[in-house]
Design a protein around this nucleic acid. Structure first.
Lengths: 194, 194, 194, 194
DNA sequence: TATGAATGAGCTTTCATTCAT
DNA sequence: TATGAATGAAAGCTCATTCAT
């Protein structure tokens, strides 16, 4: 009975609920998140949702973990330093294009992190990892000569993080804004010729 | 008597309710905004709130207008071009320090603008004005020689806007992050020597 | 200060409020009766309404008295017996045409009389007087030969009362229904040739 | 299991709520109809009421349908024409005795029909059917000789409808009034010897 | 494992009434 | 005498959660 299939059934259901919640949050924000809608989007009854997640908070925690893991996947790149940075931005651009919900959800999580310790812990940790990765690349690029020696790598990394978050998680107007923001960011890091 | 004080009494109450709502949104987000809490924070009964604002939405609209006007006040600066930009950043820094709720509220409004046309209109308009002001300064600074000639003033302005929004409206970790982000932004615009 | 003018001022205000309430009840029923609307229809503030009537119930009581008095005015007619009955019906017809609100309000009061002892007392009393008047005329007409001798004057009077109330206080479809109901009622009482 | 019982469970609950609302309206009028009271009279929570009826209006619509259907059941009688009319009146008398709430509710609906299009449509339609049935019987009775040939069958039917509504849906004083009104009505239609 | 049914707690909004002026 | 402002009490409705099956 407690076969691996059984537990993977559970995992599948949970995952389907998390994805449904993910979509609902992207569309309606936490403000408009309704367990009934999530369940119905996942094709099950509300009671079933509570069978897999004891509470709405628990579901949100799972969405949080899902989003964070999804985002961290952008951080794993290989190649020379400059290449890694370029790939990182390319990965972000692609993610914004292919999975805009992720950034909507991350925006919601960012604001929620100010109020909810559970969210804060995981969210801040992810942002910290992200910043550290960027900082590391900038320093390394300075050492191996592929990038200018950074005067203040911490500040530079913070600027990158802030700019990407501002541009991708908040609606800034026309989509072109996002494109040009990324471009300018790359220019300011000497990742682009023009 | 229908003295000017009479009408300002109403304005005062409305303003006090808006400020209370402002604080509540900053603290709990739209998600946790409760008319009863707003009223109680303003020291009145819920029914009194509805005496001044026909609905919760109307109250939110007033908060929106208040926040936008508050933010736009940072845009009015004088002096040489470089000075104006520096003053603009100084003003933002001061505002973040003295009135952090404004940025919390603006973050909430930013996310809400994706769903609520009323919010979108006013919010996007404010962001647009902001970007255009920055763009104008960059171009002007390039012409009068106080700043480098911008290769792509639109993109540069977008980056500034995105970075400031990301840094000020989202919790990025320690407060130091915000300081260094601003510093680096100024450096990247050649507003700082070091 | 306590001059007759003062008290007639009061009486005027009260009367204007009662007439406003009268109209509101006719239009929206007791279900939709709002003191604010009454006051506003009378051109005064709600608080003023409460200055003249201690409570909504008191206002309703005044409306009740007004309506009953208004209706009783139909009962005072002179002439021969058959003429008196004919005039009574003519008076009702005219009243229905010129002041339909009265019947709307009386319908509301009729239903309310089932629940509200204050209304019941006055309303039933009025209906009783009315029935007795009709009964008296039928008996008298039988005696002086102007009408057939009634077999059961009580029942006949009850039928008249019920029919008039049903026809005038309840919406029965096209207005023609009311006309033909009155006509048939007169026929059944031998007040009409055809 | 999706057995027929399952759906009748829902129907039963709905019916029990409708009956509770029915009673509440009879007792307190639409004016005093409270969903909480209805729910509590049906032995359930208010939220349960809203589980079965999306809104108070929907509940009222169901009460309307119930009352109309209940009333129309009086119209289905068989036998000779005079007999049918007599049976119709007997049925009404019985209904008034056994289910007085129906007439209280119908009175409320009659008044509401002046304001609420939904009520008006169904209510007027029922009254029209009723009048047409009576008219038809009067005409048929005239033809087959069991009743006098009606001079004005429309007016006669209207009088019957008005009288029955006035007598049964409005409180006219002592219950005896209703009895004698019915008796007199039958006499006027030659359905009674004396 | 899954669900229809049920509910407690709470939300926004309304309204008759009061009170200071 | 009249009002703008304020409020307590409730109303209709919603929602996360529970429970019997």
């Amino acid at each position: 009975m407690a076969s691996p299939e059984a537990s993977s059934r559970t995992a599948e259901r949970q995952s389907s609920l998390v994805r449904a919640a993910y979509g609902e949050i992207a569309e309606h924000g936490f403000e408009g998140l309704r367990t009934r809608e999530v369940a119905s989007a996942a094709g099950v009854n509300v009671a079933t949702l509570h069978y897999y997640f004891p509470s709405k908070e628990a579901l949100i925690a799972a969405v949080l973990a899902h989003a964070m893991q999804r985002f961290r996947s952008t951080l794993n790149v290989s190649g020379s330093v400059a290449e890694q940075l370029r790939k990182h931005f390319d990965g972000l651009r692609r993610l914004v294009r292919d999975e805009p919900e992720l950034f909507a959800v991350m925006g919601e999580l960012a604001l929620r992190s100010a109020r909810d310790p559970t969210v804060r812990d995981l969210f801040q940790q992810t942002v910290d990892v992200w910043r550290r990765v960027i900082r590391g690349l900038l320093v390394k690029g300075g050492k191996d000569g592929s990038l200018p020696v950074p005067r203040d790598p911490d500040a530079q990394a913070s600027l990158v993080v802030a700019a990407v978050m501002g541009a991708s998680m908040m609606p800034l107007g026309r989509p072109a804004r996002l494109t040009e923001t990324f471009r300018e960011l790359e220019r300011s890091l000497n990742l682009r010729a023009n």
